[in-house]
Design a protein around this nucleic acid. Structure first.
Length: 716
DNA sequence: TGCCAGGTTATTTTT
DNA sequence: TAACCTGGCA
């Protein structure tokens, strides 16, 4: 697996990946496969707008695809079209933002063309960056087998770096917390701006900390390199750095891709845009997106990227796809009205054109308070279900998770099945991370974050104690020539473990030792003994590491499996999570790959979500609803202060809130309910809430107002 | 130094 | 709801 691009978004050892060396044609078998691609009548299967984009001649192209206009379809057919023109699959680079999108896209291409997914070069920015760096990272001083940290790990490492530079920093409560420091630094990196600029623009109240933050950033950087770690941003930042440093490598990749396709281009940040621009040195790039749906500027997304794309790629052809296949004309009329109120000069003008039959106008619903809002929705849902609607056709969208609290209670009470996609992801759940930390530490004893996480689980052991013990173990290691993990159980270390923690400490260390033995050959025995019968070095050559899923099973059987019971009351379900991790890991042949993927993949790819889609109502934030569609959509909390949310108003980010509202509205296919509570009972005395400005701005003929009387009225 | 209980507070979160 | 913080105690 040396070729960085010989992968699909999912690693499936069952279908071995073939790669073709540079300059060589594909093997004959492949050609046969290629010829068997069904001929597609592009003109018949696409509308005129889509057809134009799909069959665009080579060269830079920008496809503005409105909500529900068949964006994915267009992209998929574009790939098929290129293939039909003789382009080889490995000459196409397909970049998406999410794993979900990558998976879906590759899947659909395979369905359409019959060519297996893994022939295509596709994945998320981060996936591709990872593979690239595993190959060429040394150019910028990162080792091949770096470990990728997730958000939490990165913050922990950053905290360490901060304390190293200024031990008292976090004690001052006026200073930003580790999370915020991380945010600032990350934002700077993703937007290619100096920290100073970021502070000026977004955090003026931390301006005086500029020097300090810069010092934190570089200390953090050093730590990462020293410990062989990379955070998410590194995958992009260092990728770009390599391309800029090593012209030969850059040229190789620039020549390799004849066609680069980028999905959701409006959500690229400056760093990602630079990557694309660099790779697409010959302007062989098609960007697809919708600037009206850019909702991630707070994380560095820069929707002007889409606006200035033609400047950076001279000769760009512009395609607009505006026929909407998703929503009723009434819903689209409202959606278009949302955009009319956009500040001027915000992106491209667009108007979605309906082709579906008429339906009911969207409703605006005023409820007394949150509770009444929830009750209204529950009653309405019951009505829909009685009319034969499936629960899965219904979604409730909101701006922030906590807006849905009353609703959850009300739904549970009425026994309406629902799922809520909450903020915590599978791999970020504490027990999953606990377990994986042990494996990570066994895999890479340099990974002190993993060690601390594991050690501090034990009662009576906190960070300070853990640090002392680790130091002792290091000393011991030098003495005995063993491994660090072997030293954990050395007498000199164990005596320093707090009395009550001893049993757990030893158990934990023994498990770690088991894991280590499963992963790596034992170190050469000390020579000084003169022991002629010591195991011979040949043992090492013969060592075969255990498969990742076996290692995970080993860890569960070990110390943590039992310890978990003492940790959480709901340990059985957590134990199930861990067991499902074993199944998940079966897909991976080696630990390095698994550890890398674990961090890059989020909940989508777990077996868990595969089971999820049942016939249930879906509750989700608007951000997470992007790309989805539902026949019936409720958008709740449409009051000033809730949506647009107060903080966004304070910071002057109304336009992003408006785009968010636009995204929410365009999820709906047939029925749309926009509701808000008129009184807030949250914390303290009841306060009156105004109708959201987004509703106030709408022409009155775009919706029907429904004022809920306290008593039951009519059907609801 | 570490633990625990109780209280507070709440943006959004592709990787 | 849950995650986080704080203060007081062992």
């Amino acid at each position: 697996m040396d070729d960085p691009f010989s992968f699909s978004s999912q690693s499936t050892p069952s279908t071995p990946v073939k790669t073709y060396p540079e300059g060589e044609g594909a093997p004959v078998s492949w050609k046969t496969a290629f010829e068997s691609v069904p001929t597609i009548d592009f003109k018949a299967q696409l509308n005129a707008e889509q057809y134009a984009a799909v069959t665009a001649p080579a060269g830079p192209a920008l496809v503005l695809a409105g909500a529900g206009s068949g964006k994915t379809r267009t992209l998929t057919y574009r790939v098929a079209y290129l293939l039909s023109q003789g382009v080889q699959p490995w000459e196409i680079l397909l970049i998406t933002f999410t794993n979900k999108a990558a998976k879906e896209m590759l899947h659909r291409v395979e369905d359409l063309t019959g060519i297996p997914q893994h022939r295509f070069w596709g994945g998320t920015f981060h996936h591709i960056g990872q593979r690239f760096l595993r190959m060429h990272g040394q150019v910028v001083g990162i080792s091949k087998d770096f470990t990728i940290m997730d958000q939490g790990d990165a913050e922990a490492l950053l905290s360490d770096a901060v304390r190293e530079v200024d031990g008292a920093f976090f004690r001052n409560k006026d200073n930003p917390k580790a999370k915020v420091v991380a945010e600032i630094i990350s934002y700077a990196r993703n937007t290619l701006k100096p920290i100073k600029t970021v502070l000026d623009e977004k955090y003026p109240y931390f301006k005086n900390l500029c020097q300090l933050l810069q010092a934190f950033a570089s200390a953090y950087e050093q730590r990462k390199r020293k410990q062989g770690m990379a955070d998410y941003d590194d995958l992009l930042e260092l990728w770009l750095k390599v391309l800029e440093t090593d012209k030969a490598v850059a040229a190789e990749f620039q020549g390799r891709f004849k066609h680069i396709l980028v999905d959701e281009y409006q959500d690229t940040n400056r760093l990602q845009a630079s990557l694309i621009d660099t790779l697409a040195a010959n302007h062989q790039v098609m960007a697809v997106g919708d600037d009206a749906q850019c909702i991630y500027t707070w994380r560095g997304a820069h929707f002007e990227n889409i606006v200035t794309f033609p400047n950076r790629h001279p000769g760009t052809q512009l395609f607009k796809i505006e026929t909407n296949y998703r929503s009723s004309p009434q819903i689209l009329e409202l959606a278009n009205a949302v955009l009319v109120n956009q500040a001027q000069n915000e992106g491209y003008s667009k108007e979605l054109r309906a082709i579906l039959p008429n339906k009911q106008k969207p409703y605006v619903v005023q409820a007394m308070d949150n509770r009444a809002q929830a009750q209204f929705i529950v009653r309405r849902i019951q009505g829909l279900l009685n009319d034969g609607r499936s629960a899965r056709d219904i979604a409730i969208l909101y701006r922030a998770h906590y807006h849905a609290m009353d609703l959850q209670m009300e739904l549970s009470r009425s026994q309406i099945p629902y799922i809520i996609t909450s903020g915590v992801r599978f791999f970020e759940q504490s027990h999953v991370k606990d377990l994986m930390s042990q494996i990570r530490f066994a895999w890479n004893p340099q990974d002190t974050i993993a060690f601390f996480r594991t050690a501090c689980l034990i009662p009576k052991i906190g960070p300070k104690t853990a640090e002392r013990l680790l130091e002792l173990a290091h000393k011991e290691k030098l003495k005995t020539q063993g491994t660090l993990i072997q030293s954990l159980t050395a007498e000199a270390v164990v005596v320093k473990v707090p009395l009550e923690a001893k049993d757990d400490w030893v158990d934990m260390s023994l498990t770690l030792q088991n894991l280590e033995e499963a992963l790596r050959p034992p170190p050469p025995p000390p020579i000084s003994d003169g022991d002629l019968f010591a195991p011979k070095p040949t043992n090492q050559a013969a060592f075969i590491p255990k498969a990742p899923h076996e290692v995970i099973a080993l860890a569960i059987e070990g110390w943590y499996g039992d310890f978990l019971r003492t940790l959480h009351p709901n340990w059985t379900s957590r134990r199930d999570d861990l067991d499902s991790l074993v199944g998940f890991a079966e897909r991976y042949a080696d630990m390095a790959e698994l550890l890398g993927q674990l961090v890059l993949l989020n909940s989508e790819s777990t077996d868990r979500s595969a089971e999820e889609p049942g016939d249930v109502v879906r509750l989700t934030t608007i951000h997470q609803s992007k790309g989805l569609e539902f026949p019936v959509v409720f958008i709740i909390g449409l009051a000033e202060g809730l949506f647009p949310i107060k903080r966004a108003v304070d910071e002057g980010n109304i336009e992003e809130e408006r785009r968010l509202f636009y995204v929410a509205v365009t999820r709906a296919m047939e029925e749309l309910y926009l509701s808000y509570p008129m009184v807030s009972l949250q914390g303290g005395p009841p306060t009156r809430l105004e109708m959201s400005c987004f509703l106030q701005e709408l022409p009155e003929n775009t919706y029907e107002l429904l004022h809920l009387a306290p008593v039951k009225m009519g059907r609801w």
